[in-house]
């Protein structure tokens, strides 16, 4: 039982780290620009597909991963230049309309280019083994590597935001956009940078998850909504909040699906417990989010905003 718990805890952390990679860029876009971007999940999907395509042509995992970064960065820059830039001053509704349209366009383009069938990506040789966990259980090295990489990215993001000049401007921009602009910083260039970096992180997440999950046109949708949950629980605009909330959501979701039915079984008869467990488990993270917003309407690390 303890082994199973540890195993699921690691799975939860791995999922949480992934959510963080996608959420980090989006929470800054939300927080600094007050911009609703439904198309962020699509960038995650594009990362997965570019990875699958590069693996198909080069066959080299590391080379493909290295190529995903500039490609998704470029996609982010193009989208920012063509669409998002014109929408920063508009209402949330116009932003929802445009980015919802982009989701449709990009998902359909992916279907046209690669078809609807899921693609799979081979794991690199060096990470394909498993290491012994407590007792007879083993844990795949690749998943551990994902956790490690995610923590590394989180650390470097923390360093950039807390210790560098760009990070200082970011924090200032999140607090008061017009003041930063008035003090002589080109806020549009800052936006573009944040947006492109966020796109690259999301694409990177899509690429590193592709050997674990398959790459399919629906992958962006499913992660997008959970990313919103993460951002809102953590507090819009807070990368630290996104990190804590991502791990929380990842672990609650994974453990809930595994142990929810087991816990319920001790309370009611097995058949009812199985049904109730199946029903409640996928709702758990949304219940968590509603509860957090009930007690802290601006999220765990959010500033109280008067909008």
């Amino acid at each position: 039982m303890f082994n199973l718990f540890l195993l699921q805890l690691l799975n939860g952390a791995q999922f949480g780290v992934l959510l963080f990679l996608v959420a980090a860029g989006l929470t800054l876009v939300f927080g600094i620009m007050d911009f609703i971007n439904l198309a962020h999940g699509v960038l995650y999907m594009v990362g997965g597909y570019v990875m699958a395509m590069m693996m198909g042509t080069t066959g080299n995992f590391w080379l493909s991963l290295a190529l995903v970064l500039p490609v998704t960065l470029a996609v982010g820059l193009v989208l920012e230049l063509l669409v998002f830039r014109r929408l920063y001053d508009r209402s949330h509704l116009d932003q929802v309309l445009a980015t919802f349209g982009l989701v449709l366009v990009l998902s359909e383009l992916v279907r046209i280019l690669w078809g609807s069938a899921p693609l799979s990506v081979a794991m690199p040789e060096i990470l394909s083994g498993s290491v012994p966990l407590a007792g007879p259980m083993r844990y795949p090295v690749y998943r551990l590597a994902v956790i490690g990489v995610g923590l590394g990215v989180a650390l470097s993001l923390w360093f950039v935001i807390a210790r560098t000049r760009v990070g200082m401007l970011l924090r200032a921009g999140a607090a008061n956009r017009s003041m930063v602009s008035a003090l002589g910083t080109d806020i549009n260039r800052l936006f573009m940078l944040v947006f492109a970096a966020g796109a690259m992180l999301a694409g990177f997440a899509g690429a590193i998850v592709s050997p674990i999950l398959s790459v399919d046109p629906g992958m962006g949708d499913s992660i997008l909504i959970l990313t919103f949950v993460v951002i809102v629980i953590g507090g819009v605009g807070s990368v630290k909040g996104a990190f804590c909330a991502a791990l929380l959501v990842g672990i609650v979701d994974t453990l809930g699906r595994m142990f929810g039915p087991i816990l319920l079984k001790s309370l009611m008869d097995p058949a009812a417990a199985a049904q109730a467990g199946r029903t409640i488990a996928p709702m758990l993270v949304y219940i968590l989010m509603a509860a957090v917003l009930f007690w802290r309407p601006a999220g765990l690390f959010g500033r109280a905003v008067a909008r």
Binding site: F30, D34, I36, H92, F228, V229, I231, V232, V236, M289, A290, L293, F294, P297, A298, G299, V305, R307
Partner: peptide, 10 residues
């Protein structure tokens, strides 16, 4: 209880 983006998300 929430406003703006938070209302949309909740």
């Amino acid at each position: 209880r929430t406003r703006g983006v938070y209302f949309i998300m909740i």
